[in-house]
Nucleic acid binder design. Sequence first.
DNA 1: GTGAAAGCGCTAACAC
DNA 2: GTGTTAGCGCTTTCAC
Lengths: 334, 334
Amino acid sequence: MPTGSRRLPTGPDAPATIADVAREAGVSKTTASDALRGHGRVSDATRRSVLDTARRLGYAPNRSARSLRTSVTDTIALHIPEFLTGAEYYMSFVFGVAEQAARAGLNVTLVSSGRLPQVDGLILCDPMPENPVVGRLMSAGIPVVTAERFGGDAQPTGVIWSDHETALTELLDHLRARGARRPVFIASDTTADWALTLQRTYARWCARHDIQLLLRKAPFGSPPEALRGVVRELLVENPHTDAIVCAADGAAAAVLPEIRSAGRVVGEDLLLVSCVDSLAMRTAEPPITAIDLRPRHMGAECVRLLREILTGETPPGTARTLAIEMIVRASTRS
Amino acid sequence: MPTGSRRLPTGPDAPATIADVAREAGVSKTTASDALRGHGRVSDATRRSVLDTARRLGYAPNRSARSLRTSVTDTIALHIPEFLTGAEYYMSFVFGVAEQAARAGLNVTLVSSGRLPQVDGLILCDPMPENPVVGRLMSAGIPVVTAERFGGDAQPTGVIWSDHETALTELLDHLRARGARRPVFIASDTTADWALTLQRTYARWCARHDIQLLLRKAPFGSPPEALRGVVRELLVENPHTDAIVCAADGAAAAVLPEIRSAGRVVGEDLLLVSCVDSLAMRTAEPPITAIDLRPRHMGAECVRLLREILTGETPPGTARTLAIEMIVRASTRS
DNA sequence: GTGAAAGCGCTAACAC
DNA sequence: GTGTTAGCGCTTTCAC
C-alpha cells in the first residue's frame, strides 16, 4: 500500500545530488563520491573542495540510491516482545538501541509483525522459541543479535546475555543471610531464556542448601489482580513463608499490597525481592531489593555487536556478557 | 559510517526481481509491475498469472529501487521525548504506532537525534517547543503529525489531541463532589501542551469555584525522592490539604508512601488522583483514580492521520481529538 | 492490453 | 589521482 505519489520538488530547490556537487566542484561523480566517503584515492585539495561544496549545497546522499547500488541499507530492525503491561525494561532497552544506533549512523526500524523490511541486521530482545514471529525473523537470512540467549533451534549470529544465574544466586544468598529459610519463587511462565535460567538457578540453589523448592507460576504481564491472587493463595497455604522472589518486571511491587493486607510486614517478617529492577521497585514502600539488568546498556551493546558483525570486525557466533548487579533496599534490610 | 560491503547473494538463490517474474510469466517488466500493483491496464488472466509466478518465486519488491524511482519510502519516523523514567504512556504509544503502521504497510523508524532519515512523514509525540531536536524535525519539510498540540511557532501538518481540559475539570469536580475543598496541583514543569493545558485548567477551575490555587512544580521524570520531597513540604506547609492532583505519569504512585508516612490516609482524609493512568495507578495501594489517556489508541490514530495526509485523502492542517476518560478508583472513593 | 526504453542517484570496475 | 561507463530494480512515459 504505497503512500501516494508525491514527488520531490524539481527545479532549483530540489535536493542536491552527487552530480550537482561534482559539477559545482569541477570533478567527476566518482571523485566526488570518493571524496565524500573518505576513500583514499583523492588528493587532499580536491577532497576539501568537494566536501566544501557539498556542505554549501546542503548535499545529503540519497539512501535509496546508495542502497540500491550497494545493497546496504544502514538500517537495522528491532523486535521486542509485547505484553499487556508496559514493562519498563523494554522501554529503556529501546532507548539504548536508538541512541547507540544514532551514534553509529544506523537507522532503527521497529518490527511488530513477522514482515521484515529490508534491513542489514536484526536485534531480537528476549526472544521466545514458541513465538512464530521470532521464528520467522530468525530465519530471515540476515545477521541477528539477541538480547539474552535463544532457547530455540536456530542460533543467532550474536548474543549479549546477562549472568542471571550468578545474580540470582547472590540474591538468594542475601536472603539466606538475612534469615530467610523458605524463599518462594514466583516465576513468569515465559520461555524466554532468562526466565528459564532463573527457575533452574532457584531449583539448584534449593537443592544445594537443602531447602524446599516452592515455585509458583504467573503469566508474564499478568494483571496485578492475578499476581495478588497467587500471593494470597501462597500465604494461606504456606503461612511460614519468609521470603518471596518475583521474577517478572514489576510483579514485586504489584504484590506488595497483598502481602500487607495479609498482615505481613515486608522487610521485617517477610523479605521481598525482584529479579528485575525498575522505577516501581525504587518507589515501592518499602523500596524493593532487585537486580539491575541495565536495559539501556543492553540495548546499546546489542547495536554495537551487530554493527561489528556487519562490518566484519567481529566474527559471527560471538557471545558477550553484560554485567548486572543486585541492589539492596529496605525490603530485605529493615 | 556504512556497514561494510556485503553483497546480496548472486546466482540462483538471489532474491527474485521483477525481471525474473516478468520473464517467468512471459510478459514485460511493465506488465508485471502493473499487475503486481493492481493497475487497471492488464487483463485479469495476465494479472493472475503474474501474481502467481510472483508468489511462486517469493518475489518481494526491492524498496530501495522503488523508492529511488518514486521518491516514496513507505517509511515514517517516530520521535518520542526521553526522560529518566520509563513512562508507560510512551511505551504504549510506541506499540500503537508500530502496530497500526504494520497494518498500513508502513515502516517505522525511531529518531532520537535531530538527524532525520529519508522518510515520508513524521510523528512527534508530546512535542516541546524548547526542544531543539523537535524544532529541527518540524522544519524538515515533510508532513508532521503530532500527538498533542505543539506550542511553538511552526504548525504541524496534522494533530491528534486529547481534551485534557474537559477531563481534568471532570476530575476536579469529582474531587469537589467527594468533599475536597483545597485540591493541590503538582505540575510537571514541561512545556508540552498537555502539561500547560492542565495547569491552565486547574487555575481556571480554582477561580471559578473561588478556591485557592495551590500549585507545586516538579520536573517531569523527577526521581521519586524529589517528588516525595515536594509532597512532604506541601503537607507541612499546608496541613489542611485534602486532595492532591499529580500531573506526571507515575508521580501519584511515587508520592503515596510519603503521604502515608505523614499520617494521612489516602481515600479517607486525603484524596489522590493522577492525570495519567498507568499500571502503577492500578496496582497502588489504594488504587488511584486517574485519567486514561489511551496512549495505544493515540499512537494508532497518529499513524492513521499521517497516512491519510500522505495519500491526500485528508487535507493538511487537520486536527482530531482523541477521547479520554476518568477512571474512578479507591483513592477517591474510600 | 501490452512492450521498449529511459532514468531515478549512486558506486564499482576499469580505463588512463 | 581522476574520469568514463555501466548498472543496481524499479516505475513511467510513450509508442503500438
